[in-house]
Design a protein around this nucleic acid. Structure first.
Lengths: 270, 270
DNA sequence: TGCTGTCTGTACGCTACCGAACATATGAGA
DNA sequence: TCTCATATGTTCGGTAGCGTACAGACAGCA
């Protein structure tokens, strides 16, 4: 039953103080994607919807940090110190069972935020947050987030809406885990992830995807081979590319469409 | 694949105006449980935590309604008109797939509220809310809930904490659906439901439980028989009784304990 | 008391997915 | 260019849960 998870990477950048705000512009972060454009908070949809005035007061507290594959943003029942607003990174919220098996609860990309529990008041959760696609995120200190949230402005409004979008995604994951095949779930996962990146190609192994879905690596291999035969995707060692998005949507269960539609409706984005 | 759901019951009580506030004391509601004590908003934990002052302003807007097995409190993508705070009723939030199969996303009893999306701002959800244990709930009109929530008082605080508890339960359902056996899931579901009632006996069919878990009725029959053999539960046509709670906890996966612990931590109850 | 609808028990073949073991092939780094 | 860690391919038996079908048994009601 135990499914091996990527060994957590200690990303020294994540330990730096806010003083080292420009760290991301230095080599340590630059390796992630050389061609990546200069980062900007508004690349995150939640931050992007804030009026200029709100953003002005917030921006001095936002710290750009590079997130790398395997970085743990939080672990079960440990106090979160920051909320993360991904711009190009993608984070997986997942739960690891007592027997060591894992499964993703929800993904978080540039449409969302990691650290809901900071403003709901719980501060910790039984789940973990792991980076599965390297990139950048802006982070905000715990106390700052709480302060901003309690201003009852646009940030509170959009975070509450995002919370509902998150609940929708988690709910859909629950139903999907119950009723849909691995191939359908793989299609759903690829589509949801595709919506969070710009490139159309994923840099990840089938083993990692298997951990996300909570299935065996072999099951992912079989499903991926099937999708490749149909011509939806193509893949090679450590890479997956979506070739035909329309066909991939046909291979997915409705869960993808439900989540996407709700996310668009609630946040006005995708 | 299609799993038949109980045909939605049109509960005339739910259509009455606030003027018929005392409806619950009349025969229509009385049948539910003759021995049931007079209802009181503080039987719901969320309402129960409110300071007297907050409660005073709220209580005039709270309407006691009887909820009966099969009542639908909301359906996918339709505007909610009320938030419900169960006292003795239990509601199932569930999703019905495109092929007609259903599975529970979370249960809501006297520890919670049905209608989160009213204050998050979405107003609708892709899921449904169906009563699976008859009883009572206090309800609050949509606009009243929003007004109260935006006061930024204790109600907002406790609702945000409840939202996190809900996310925990949904997340755990997702992981449980992926990794645990029907017998473990049945045990978890019975325990969670047991925490929401006072009697120790459930009035429900195996078919209904199967719809909740999203599995076949026969799978529930087998799991229930197994639990009965062990001596955890006993059941007869339309009734399930928990005989030995400790043993039932041993038959459950850790998901029950995780949800219960988090609920207690976040709400200080259950 | 007897009828009847509904709830529960049982059986059968089937399929998807699991667990384990091992073969092959890729590509990053020496 | 070669090496080797690691990613992917393949196989095989096992099993949990599904879909279907039907039998028995309970309980509400006439």
């Amino acid at each position: 039953m135990p499914v091996s998870i990527i060994p957590p990477v200690l990303n020294p950048d994540l330990r730096k103080s806010a003083a080292a705000n420009s760290a991301a512009a230095k080599p340590k972060g630059a390796f992630i994607l050389a061609a990546e454009k200069a980062q900007n908070p508004s690349l995150n949809y939640l931050l992007g919807t804030l009026p200029a005035a709100d953003m002005a007061s917030l921006s001095e507290h936002l710290e750009l940090v590079p997130l790398r594959l395997g970085d743990m943003l939080y672990e079960p029942n440990t106090q979160l110190q920051h909320a993360y607003f991904p711009t190009s990174a993608i984070v997986s919220l997942h739960y690891v069972t007592a027997s060591g098996a894992s499964s993703e609860i929800s993904g978080v990309g540039n449409e969302g935020m990691v650290g809901i529990s900071l403003f709901t008041g719980g501060n910790t959760t039984p789940s973990s947050a792991m980076v599965h696609t390297s990139g950048y995120a802006y982070r905000l200190e715990r106390s700052q987030l709480k302060t901003e949230f309690n201003r009852n402005g646009k940030l509170q409004q959009i975070l509450l809406r995002y919370t509902q979008a998150l609940i929708t995604q988690v709910s859909q994951t629950a139903a999907c885990n119950r009723h849909h095949s691995v191939e359908q779930q793989l299609s759903r996962w690829l589509l949801l992830t595709l919506d969070r990146i710009t490139s159309g190609e994923f840099v990840l192994t089938q083993e990692l995807v298997a951990n996300m879905l909570g299935v065996r690596r072999e099951s992912v291999t079989a499903a991926a081979a099937s999708l490749q035969d149909i011509g939806c995707i193509s893949y090679r060692r450590g890479h997956i590319s979506v070739i035909n998005r329309k066909d991939l949507e046909k291979c997915s269960c409705e869960c993808y469409a439900v989540v996407r539609k709700e996310t668009q409706r609630l946040l006005g984005v995708s």
